[in-house]
């Protein structure tokens, strides 16, 4: 059983969680809009099934309800860091390939990148709140290894895969954060991260 949580920490966590839920909800709406615009702009088939793309964190998870709070936060953080790098690369490719042909899509991409960065920082805040070390800060500097050079169509499919997974992750993050705010059955108080169901 984790040490009983001080009321101020519980209050701070509840506040961070509810703000995180709103941020993730907004991010999901923006990503879904961006996905529609991306599919149209890139001439893709919205229903095309895209094989898992190397380096894109999958939102799919088994026995989701059995995860601890720390697991949830750590998995979320790793995912959004990866998305930050992937979106930055998409933005670079967008400029390279389209120049100023479609400024709108570039702006929408940059806006989502900002939200992903903000959400990653938010998750780090939650982990700091639980005095848990922020993983992989050092690796963060060099960031994930640059992915292999893809053909243009593969780049388009990867972009589709990135945005689809990000949209799923946003829903998962909302659910994860709700789990963190749920009172644990025993004490009735919000569970310490380690033990939340």
């Amino acid at each position: 059983m984790a040490a009983a949580e001080s009321p101020s920490t519980a209050l701070r966590r509840r506040d961070l969680c509810s703000r995180g839920i709103r941020l993730a909800g907004k991010m999901r709406a923006d990503v879904v809009d961006l996905l529609d615009a991306y599919v149209e702009q890139q001439g893709l088939d919205a229903s095309a099934s895209v094989a898992a793309v190397e380096g894109v964190p999958l939102a799919a998870v088994e026995r989701w309800d059995e995860q601890t709070g720390t697991q949830r936060l750590l998995e979320n953080l790793a995912a959004y860091r990866a998305f930050r790098a992937l979106l930055a690369q998409m933005l670079e490719e967008q400029r390279e390939q389209l120049g100023e042909a479609d400024v709108g899509l570039g702006r929408a991409l940059a806006a989502v990148l900002l939200q992903v960065s903000a959400f990653a920082y938010h998750l780090e805040e939650l982990l700091r709140l639980e005095s848990r070390g922020i993983p992989g800060e050092e690796e963060e500097e060099d960031g994930p290894p640059p992915p292999p050079r893809l053909s243009l169509f593969e780049q388009k499919l990867r972009g589709l895969g990135v945005l689809r997974e990000l949209a799923q992750w946003a829903v998962r993050s909302v659910r994860d954060l709700r789990q963190l705010t749920k009172p644990s059955p025993a004490t009735g108080a919000a569970p310490g991260l380690a033990e939340s169901p």
């Binding site: 890139q42 001439g43 893709l44």
Partner: peptide, 8 residues
């Protein structure tokens, strides 16, 4: 169009 025509 600006992003090219896909041949799928």
């Amino acid at each position: 169009n600006s992003s090219g025509t896909n041949v799928v």
